[in-house]
């Protein structure tokens, strides 16, 4: 899974069938699990089971200036893994490129579907 260095990816443009290439870097990764707990009659936890694992990645992405605007709900493929774009913020734009801050997520390795 892409979490370090620089990676080439493709990002969907929501509401279209268009893909744009994106260069991602500056990765910060966090992994969380969701837990189910079982309690006894006094309310004490007697069993905990993790049942879902989610990976969240913050990174920066460079796109060509000609690319359409990127929106949350898009999907990104990086090194063969598909992520959902949870949030995106444009931080720099000029005649040559656009730079975004992304928050990407992947849950239990499933392939997410983009917002339609």
């Amino acid at each position: 899974m892409a979490t370090a260095g620089r990676h080439w990816g493709i990002i969907s443009i929501t509401g279209t069938t268009v893909f744009e290439s994106v260069v991602m870097q500056g990765f910060t990764k966090s992994i969380t699990v969701e837990k189910a707990t079982a309690k006894d009659e006094t309310g004490k936890t007697i069993n905990v089971k993790a049942y879902s694992k989610a990976t969240s990645i913050s990174c920066q992405g460079l796109l060509n200036a000609s690319a359409p605007a990127i929106d949350a709900g898009a999907t990104v493929i990086l090194s063969g893994t598909t992520f959902l774009v949870d949030s995106v913020e444009q931080v720099e734009a000029n005649t040559d490129f656009v730079r975004y801050n992304f928050t990407l997520s992947s849950e239990d390795g499933c392939v997410p579907e983009e917002y339609a």
Binding site: A2, I10, S21, L78, S79
Partner: peptide
């Protein structure tokens, strides 16, 4: 898509 699916390009 070919490039994005190729870890070798990384």
């Amino acid at each position: 898509l070919f490039i994005a699916s190729s870890p070798e390009f990384d």
